[in-house]
């Protein structure tokens, strides 16, 4: 990943020097709820029937996708298939750094053909991870449409890619890190900038 996270588990909070809290745990929960509503609005225009699949990009995108799916189910009662898609093997910067470990890839049993696939990631930065994910997606099937949901859009795009759903737009300096913390991996929820 680009230097957009580096969040050490449990090191959150606004106490550290030069660190700014962007979202508290409560903010993050509200943001997820809002994006869930937006996804429902945008993917069921006429109460339409196109199946929606949420695919998270590891690690935290996977958990965000699951949380969004839970919210959508609470609101509509419909079960939303979720999965996780590791774009590592499709990255364009593999040769520029030591080899990375692979993360999990698991598509829902129903597949993605003819579904509206919403890719979910925590931070949108250069756009290169999303580009890799789009290529990976193409080898797994042919969705009816692909959309992108991110918790934080921090700018500095290097490719013509934009998100359909944004939790929060955060102007950043290139050298700063956006650290997203999620209970499932970090023991608590929150987002900070340092």
């Amino acid at each position: 990943m680009p230097s957009r996270r580096r969040g050490e588990p449990g090191s959150g909070g606004a106490s550290a020097e030069g660190e700014r809290e962007l979202l508290s745990a409560a903010d993050l929960a509200r943001t997820v709820a809002r994006v869930a509503h937006e996804i429902i609005e945008r993917t069921t225009p006429d109460g339409g029937s196109a199946p929606v699949v949420l695919l998270g990009l590891p690690t935290r995108g996977t958990y965000l996708a699951r949380r969004l799916a839970e919210r959508i189910t609470e609101i509509t009662g419909a079960v939303v298939p979720t999965g996780t898609l590791d774009p590592t093997l499709y990255r364009d910067d593999l040769r520029l750094r030591p080899t990375r470990a692979l993360a999990e890839t698991e598509l829902p049993p129903g597949g993605i053909d003819d579904a509206v696939v919403v890719l979910v990631d925590d931070v949108l930065f250069s756009g290169r991870t999303v580009r890799a994910a789009l290529d990976a997606l193409r080898d797994h099937g042919r969705p009816r449409a692909v959309q992108l949901a991110v918790l934080i859009d921090r700018g500095h795009r290097e490719l013509p890619i934009r998100a359909d759903y944004v939790g929060k737009n955060v102007p950043t300096n290139r050298s700063e890190d956006v650290a997203v913390r999620m209970t499932e991996v970090d023991g608590e929820d929150g987002v900070s900038l340092r």
């Binding site: 093997l89 692979l102 993360a103 999990e104």
Partner: peptide
């Protein structure tokens, strides 16, 4: 790490139409 990556390769190729990675 090699065994984990091998498991990841299997996952990456499971159930897909195109068994080809650009890596």
């Amino acid at each position: 790490a090699l065994l984990d990556t091998a498991a990841g390769m299997e996952q990456a190729l499971t159930g897909r139409a195109v068994r080809k990675l650009p890596t």
